[in-house]
Simulated assay, not measured.
Amino acid sequence: MPSSFEHAQIRHANLTGRIPVVFVHGLWLLPTSWERWAQVFAEAGFAPVTPAWPSAPPAGAAPARTAPAGTAPAGTAPARTAGEVAGHFADLIGGLDRRPAVVGHCTGGLLAQILAGRGLACAAVAISPAPLQGALPLPISPPRAPVRAPADPAVVGSAVPLTYDQFRHAFANAVDEAEAERLYETFAVPAPGVPPLQAAAAFDPWSEPEVDRTAKDRGPLLLMSGEMDRIVPWAVAHASYESQVRNEHHLTEILEMPGRGHSLTVDGGWREVCGTALTFIQRFVDA
């Protein structure tokens, strides 16, 4: 069920009469990672909605990191699958009077594609998206990956934090040390252990994160990839593009952002990425 804050955002979006834009954050981040994006889109005439995953950690990165590794901070429901989270966002979108655009990052990018494939988005932007069901080539796990073996119950049933070294290597490899430290303190939180395991198994055509690639009501789709992204390298993002570009009903595009890593939505270059997403949506949606 949407939280009281999310209900308030939905009510506000409906009252404005504007086209909503639903921002879906990825693993190890919070909805606050979209605050600057929401302001830009609001100024462009859209109604931003920045929901959390179900039973998300408390607001703010520092409080959410207080639990020991392998345990869930108070208020979390860590054993969330991608399918369960997609259902949560589908319910939230169902409360909107107008079909929204959807923008997602990392696992949020996968969720954006799932929602678009269900006909719930008038346009979608998937940034550094986790791999689709049946996607090839296999996703490349970065060294010092934060997720342990699937058989480990501490991973499957709890939240998994990132150390600073893991965050620096996987998320913030394309920025300097000072910015990496700032990003970690501002944004990094423990994440459910299940979705990364699902992403690692996405080559299986029967894995859960299913996307309807040929949906007639999918809407236009842009996939974005950072040139230096270690979590979702170009080969993985392009495989998702190749699996959807044959949708004969709607345009599918892909774009690589030079010199950018996985932190491209929150680091110092966020405005360029935001502007690119906004321009794409504005091509098809009149705010």
Results as ranks from 00 to 15, higher is better:
252 T>F: 01
35 E>V: 01
238 H>K: 07
28 W>H: 08
124 A>F: 03
188 A>Y: 01
136 L>G: 03
110 L>T: 04
214 T>L: 14
26 G>Y: 04
164 Y>F: 15
16 T>G: 14
196 P>W: 06
65 R>K: 11
184 Y>P: 02
136 L>T: 11
195 P>I: 10
118 R>P: 09
126 A>T: 10
214 T>C: 09
94 G>A: 12
279 T>F: 14
80 R>C: 03
122 C>G: 07
142 P>V: 10
63 P>D: 15
122 C>V: 15
75 G>L: 12
168 R>E: 10
200 A>S: 15
10 I>K: 13
267 D>I: 07
231 I>A: 06
1 M>V: 13
275 G>P: 04
104 G>K: 05
281 I>Y: 02
191 A>Y: 09
82 A>R: 07
74 A>N: 10
148 R>F: 11
91 D>E: 15
240 S>G: 13
147 V>A: 02
11 R>V: 12
193 G>H: 06
78 P>K: 10
284 F>N: 02
1 M>K: 06
79 A>M: 05
128 S>E: 10
191 A>N: 11
195 P>A: 14
185 E>C: 05
185 E>H: 14
51 P>M: 11
110 L>V: 01
156 V>I: 13
238 H>F: 08
157 G>F: 09
149 A>P: 00
33 S>C: 09
130 A>T: 02
15 L>H: 13
137 P>A: 12
160 V>F: 00
244 Q>C: 12
118 R>D: 02
127 I>D: 10
276 T>Q: 04
260 R>I: 03
183 L>G: 08
13 A>T: 01
249 H>S: 15
5 F>M: 02
59 A>C: 10
286 D>G: 08
129 P>S: 13
178 A>R: 15
219 G>W: 04
30 L>F: 05
175 V>N: 06
32 T>S: 12
197 L>K: 07
170 A>G: 03
91 D>T: 14
102 V>N: 00
87 G>D: 13
67 A>N: 14
151 A>Y: 11
199 A>R: 02
179 E>W: 09
50 T>Y: 06
26 G>V: 01
131 P>D: 07
95 G>I: 03
13 A>C: 06
60 G>M: 08
49 V>P: 00
28 W>K: 07
153 P>Y: 09
165 D>T: 08
23 F>N: 00
66 T>Q: 11
181 E>H: 13
12 H>C: 14
254 I>N: 03
263 S>T: 05
40 V>W: 04
30 L>R: 15
41 F>W: 01
76 T>E: 07
